[in-house]
Amino acid sequence: MRQGESVTFGTSGLDRAAALRADAARLGEMLASGPVVLPVWRGKPCLDAQTRAAFWVSADHKVLTHADEAPVFLGLDNGTPRFAQDISGWDPEALPDTLGAFHDPSEQRHPALGDGAVFAELRANMTRLTRRDAELVATARAILGWHESHGFCANCGTKSVISNAGWQRDCPACGRHHFPRTDPVVIMLITHGNSVLMGRSPGWPEGMYSLLAGFVEPGETIEAAVRRETFEEAGVTVGEVRYLSSQPWPFPSSLMFGCEGHATSAEIRIDPNEIEDALWVSREDMMQAFAGAHPLIKPARKGAIARFLIENWLADRLD
């Protein structure tokens, strides 16, 4: 797909400079070079309160005193080093009920940052980021989320320690090395004639529909996963499948494989344990939904690969 890498969080050409991850002396010099660290609080990146650009602070900034592990080296941003550090140990005076929900409009301000920066939900702000900031912030959220949930050795249960500039954890007891994981997920544009198959999960905003998606199982190809997930969720059989585009999706650690599939059946039989509803949506109805004028359907959120694939389907740009 020619437009494939223009998806949100798609490659911006960031130099991840993996060869520097083991160079402690050089990393120390880079950390001391200026405001190069992105604070992240409970999955929320620090953003400029007005522009929504990534907000970088110096390694000795007071806000980073809440961190309990070393910063992660993200790479070189046109020669400027970039790091991220988790400060989830900070406890604001009040926590909103929406924290961690699918839609969290709340924003937190740390007193050491003043009014110029906020911790905000990435999904709500992803389309306001530049391509480079989007790649950096998505990488930061994913890698820090991995550290948060993989702090103990899977072999012996001992507390592991961060190493290799954040791209590895080592067990001091049994010597095992652990590396960041990414979960493969298929998301599928399933068409039948002039219509596309859409579904919704419980807990989504009222009226919101998106493309069906599901995890790839061990020993399974992407194509097989598309057919299996579509049949399991909606009872629709799928024939030809082809890959279109991918998107890193750091909620918490997925890589979405966008695919196109052609349905060989039209009857929908949903599995209520998988999804809440599914339906065929014509091009005309989808265009009406994108315009905000459909009485029942709200489209997938801007920035998500589902929205990207549907927009390109409507514009006949899937080749």
Score class of each variant (00 low, 15 high):
81 P>V: 02
190 I>V: 15
112 A>H: 02
219 G>H: 04
274 E>R: 15
41 W>Y: 01
317 R>E: 14
126 M>Q: 10
299 P>Y: 11
161 V>T: 13
131 R>K: 13
37 V>M: 09
56 W>D: 00
9 F>D: 00
190 I>T: 11
127 T>N: 08
51 T>K: 12
273 N>G: 15
70 A>C: 06
189 L>S: 05
68 D>F: 15
27 L>A: 02
217 E>D: 11
264 T>E: 14
211 L>P: 02
147 H>I: 11
141 R>H: 05
215 F>E: 13
71 P>L: 06
90 W>V: 02
83 F>M: 07
120 A>C: 04
317 R>S: 13
176 R>K: 14
207 G>M: 01
196 V>D: 04
163 S>Y: 10
32 A>Y: 05
3 Q>D: 14
141 R>S: 00
301 R>F: 11
269 R>F: 09
293 A>S: 10
231 F>N: 12
283 R>S: 14
2 R>I: 14
248 P>D: 07
72 V>E: 04
266 A>R: 14
191 T>G: 01
38 L>N: 03
4 G>N: 07
190 I>Y: 06
276 E>R: 12
136 L>H: 00
246 S>L: 10
189 L>N: 01
15 D>W: 07
185 V>Q: 06
131 R>F: 08
198 M>Y: 10
130 T>R: 09
200 R>E: 08
202 P>C: 13
80 T>P: 02
224 A>M: 06
205 P>W: 05
45 P>S: 10
101 A>E: 09
80 T>K: 15
300 A>R: 06
229 E>R: 11
38 L>S: 02
218 P>G: 03
39 P>E: 03
69 E>L: 10
9 F>R: 03
152 F>V: 15
111 P>W: 05
47 L>M: 05
65 T>W: 13
124 A>H: 12
210 S>C: 12
105 P>D: 12
172 P>H: 07
194 N>R: 09
99 L>T: 00
182 T>D: 11
4 G>A: 15
37 V>H: 03
55 F>P: 00
219 G>D: 11
290 F>Y: 15
151 G>T: 08
189 L>Q: 03
314 L>V: 14
165 A>C: 10
70 A>I: 03
109 R>Y: 09
97 D>N: 00
28 G>P: 01
212 L>Q: 03
44 K>R: 15
273 N>C: 12
261 G>N: 11
52 R>A: 15
157 G>M: 04
286 M>R: 08
256 M>Y: 10
254 S>V: 00
49 A>V: 06
17 A>E: 07
32 A>D: 09
171 C>I: 07
135 E>A: 03
104 D>T: 00
243 Y>L: 13
190 I>F: 07
265 S>Q: 10
265 S>A: 10
260 E>H: 11
63 V>N: 05
201 S>I: 12
62 K>I: 01
39 P>M: 08
278 A>C: 12
241 V>G: 00
251 F>G: 10
250 P>T: 07
48 D>H: 13
207 G>N: 05
185 V>Y: 09
260 E>G: 03
39 P>G: 14
69 E>T: 11
83 F>Y: 03
301 R>L: 12
269 R>G: 12
118 V>M: 02
67 A>I: 05
